[in-house]
Amino acid sequence: MFKLIKTVFNTGSVTTKYPFAPMSVSEDFRGKPELDAAQCLSCGACTRACPANALIMETDEKAGTRRWELSTARCIFCGRCEEVCPTHAIKLTQNFELAVTNKADLYEHAVFSLADCSQCQRPFVAQKLLEYVLDTLAQSGVPAAQLSERRKQLQTCPACRRANNMLDSDNISHLRFIKEQQ
């Protein structure tokens, strides 16, 4: 009994001062994800990696836009989005003070305008993503003439590309092989 009283007495008061003083968390604490919109390309890697579908992308073909949405409500704070983002656009902060009375305040959006396919004219990829890929190629030394060829090639939607490959008899790979043999 005395040991207990001594222990309690020696411990004193351990209660934290929060919320009257700021609460410190570990350096690596996984709090709310924050988007650096300038770096985001709408590539969708975070959307595919998110286990809880807290990150959503929706395409509006008529308006030619693609919308990215983050739901802090559904987020499980795992950090997979941060790991897979190719441009370090989304990062988890230390913010844990997330309670709200209005559910709409838990959502964030970003809207991207889409570029049209050069063949079928249907919007299929964000303009920003296309420019980023071309900038990367330019920075790695691809000459300007080739770049404009690549632009035409890249600005073709997957359906048109498939169709092109099947009908392009000169460039189909197995035929190319046979030609070389001869």
């Binding site: 300038a38 390309l41 990215w68 838990l106 964030e108 959006h109």
Partner: peptide, 11 residues
């Protein structure tokens, strides 16, 4: 809630 402006700047 936030509405981001992703196209204001290049990545």
């Amino acid at each position: 809630s936030k509405q981001h402006q992703p196209e204001a700047q290049k990545a």
